[in-house]
């Protein structure tokens, strides 16, 4: 009975959504929006090759600050939901739920790990020139750490160091924004105040490079912290202070 109700509900939803979307022609330029403004302004005035990055950091910088805050809140909420008072046993000898990986995986992970971090750093430093940016680069760095976390049972990240990286990166984002209030032409929050440079140069795009380096560090540290929190959970029943 429940199945019938839910499937018919989904069917009705599908019919109306599809009939709405079929009227939108695929692949035609029907949005008379702000596309041309961004496509003209971004390479000419701001000298940013990647228009998506330019929208995310320059035109919608405040929104990106909120996005970074949401990630920070998610990692904080994860910590508080999974919080458990540490017994002396747990503090000295934290346990990983995953079994020990084979020797081949361990040797391979050790070789790949530095290159993964390097690739992540490349992606967020070149965020204004090539596809990618701070969030993507941070996620790539976190995959490197995930590889190490699941390969070695004794590989643990220092949460104090992660907290400091997060704090410094977030603060530098806000400080760059506040510097825009003082040094930029129109005195706006997060406005570009550095010279724009040449199109397709590494040192172009003003504050985008600096902000994306900060975002890359912050996202990498946050996702690594989330993964480590989720993976370092002991089996139920081992801890006398369970629940």
């Amino acid at each position: 009975m429940k199945n019938v109700i839910i499937i018919s509900l989904l069917g009705v939803t599908a019919y109306y959504l599809l009939s709405a979307f079929v009227s939108i022609p695929f692949g035609e330029d029907f949005i008379n929006g702000v596309k041309d403004f961004y496509l003209n302004k971004s390479p000419e005035d701001l000298k940013v090759a990647n228009v998506v990055t330019s929208i995310v950091v320059n035109f919608r910088g405040f929104d990106t600050l909120g996005e970074v805050t949401v990630l920070f809140l998610a990692s904080t909420a994860l910590g508080s939901i999974l919080y458990r008072r540490r017994s002396s046993h747990t503090a000295l000898n934290p346990q990983r739920t995953a079994p020990q990986a084979s020797t081949l995986v361990q040797a391979g992970a050790k070789v790949i790990f530095p290159f993964t971090v390097l690739l992540g750093a490349y992606v967020f430093i070149h965020g204004h020139l090539t596809p990618g940016g701070g969030f993507q680069g941070g996620a790539i760095i976190a995959t490197g750490f995930l590889l190490m976390l699941i390969s070695y049972r004794k590989f643990f990240v220092e949460h104090n160091v992660l907290t400091w990286i997060e704090a410094l990166a977030g603060t530098s984002f806000v400080v760059i924004g506040l510097a825009g209030l003082v040094y930029a032409d129109n005195h706006n929050f997060l406005e570009n105040f550095l010279p724009a440079g040449e199109l397709n140069d590494l040192l172009s795009g003003g504050i985008i490079g600096i902000i994306y380096i900060a975002v890359g560090f912050k996202v990498g540290a946050e996702i690594t912290g989330i993964l480590d929190t989720l993976l370092t959970i002991k089996e139920a029943g081992l801890d006398p202070e369970e629940n």
Partner: peptide, 18 residues
């Protein structure tokens, strides 16, 4: 929507970046 050296100034159609 990336103005790489190969595309910049050629007037290529670009998808909506928004």
């Amino acid at each position: 929507p990336i103005f790489s050296p190969a595309v910049a100034g050629t007037g290529t159609v670009m998808t909506d970046p928004v």
